[in-house]
């Protein structure tokens, strides 16, 4: 599958800044292309296999690059500038499936009681109440709001079960951010997000972060909580068939609980995304 314009025009996180300390043409794979990252006196540069220098930017604790000379702007997360928040970057975890599948799994609350049992859900409370899904037409991104779920241990700072309120945001085909009720402060949201580096159409590296108010846990404690949750997801993701994302409605039938997933797939289709998508006639 050739690279579609929508996929090509995005910025992609390819690692945390410390991952490239002193790098000398360190190999990085992005969108089926071999790139290299070099650190010259603290300035990071990215080159493609032909030696062409790619655009870069440093944001949200990560190095970002793009194959495009005229990329779409990287989405804003003003919360990164708020004082007192703690940022923990969890490092890149390899997953044998399309990064699009990882976004969709992240949006799905129905798996909480069964995959994240006794942490993000309990088997006695499996139902997903209906929530709102909307498109922000101006920014071209998806929001799922008023999501509510009973969680026995919503975050490392949680001291007991609570009804957690969630908002999900998809501002980029390979990024998604969760805004969840902060257990220790009123009227603010904690952020958990995925910056996915699509390696091949059916393989990706998931860079995740948490940006929270938390007075109690160490950074490493927060890191362990996040990595434990993500490894639970990873096993489920690697068992999905096909490894690419099916967009053909003949293939997988979404239900009401998947309203955000339906919106995500519709948005990908509207933007004519093709790379990483399973074709129905490949199924047999």
């Amino acid at each position: 599958m050739t690279l579609d314009t929508f996929t090509r025009s995005q910025w992609y996180a390819i690692g945390r800044l410390p991952d490239f300390d002193g790098a000398e043409a360190k190999p990085v794979r992005l969108l089926s292309q071999d790139l290299t990252v070099s650190d010259k006196a603290g300035v990071l540069s990215v080159n493609d296999a032909d030696g062409r220098s790619l655009l870069t930017q440093i944001r949200y604790g990560h190095l970002w690059t793009t194959l495009s000379d005229t990329p779409r702007p990287l989405y804003d997360m003003p919360e990164f500038d708020e004082p007192d928040r703690r940022l923990v970057t969890a490092g890149g975890v390899g997953v044998r499936c399309s990064g699009l599948r990882c976004v969709e799994n992240f949006l799905d609350m129905a798996h909480f009681p069964f995959v994240h049992t006794d942490i993000l859900g309990v088997e006695e409370h499996p139902s997903v109440e209906s929530y709102d899904v909307s498109m922000d037409a101006e920014k071209d991104e998806i929001w799922a709001t008023k999501c509510k779920f009973f969680q026995p241990m919503a975050s490392a700072a949680a001291s007991g079960g609570q009804i957690t309120e969630y908002k999900y945001r998809v501002p980029h085909p390979y990024s998604t951010i969760l805004y969840k009720t902060c257990p220790i402060r009123d009227n603010v949201w904690d952020l958990v997000g995925l910056f996915i580096q699509p390696v091949e159409e059916d393989e990706c590296i998931v860079h995740s972060f948490i940006l929270v108010f938390d007075d109690e846990n160490t950074d490493t404690g927060l890191l362990h909580f996040q990595q434990n949750i993500f490894l639970q997801d990873r096993m489920i993701l690697e068992n999905q068939v096909p490894r690419k994302l099916p967009l053909d409605p003949r293939w997988e039938l979404p239900t009401r609980a998947d309203a955000s997933s339906i919106a995500y797939r519709r948005w990908l289709k509207a933007n004519e995304l093709q790379w990483g998508v399973a074709l129905f006639n490949e199924a047999a």
Binding site: T89, G91, D219, T220, L223, Q227
Partner: peptide, 9 residues
């Protein structure tokens, strides 16, 4: 808790 990855603690 030891930051084995990504921190190589």
């Amino acid at each position: 808790a030891v930051d084995f990855f990504p921190g190589r603690e």
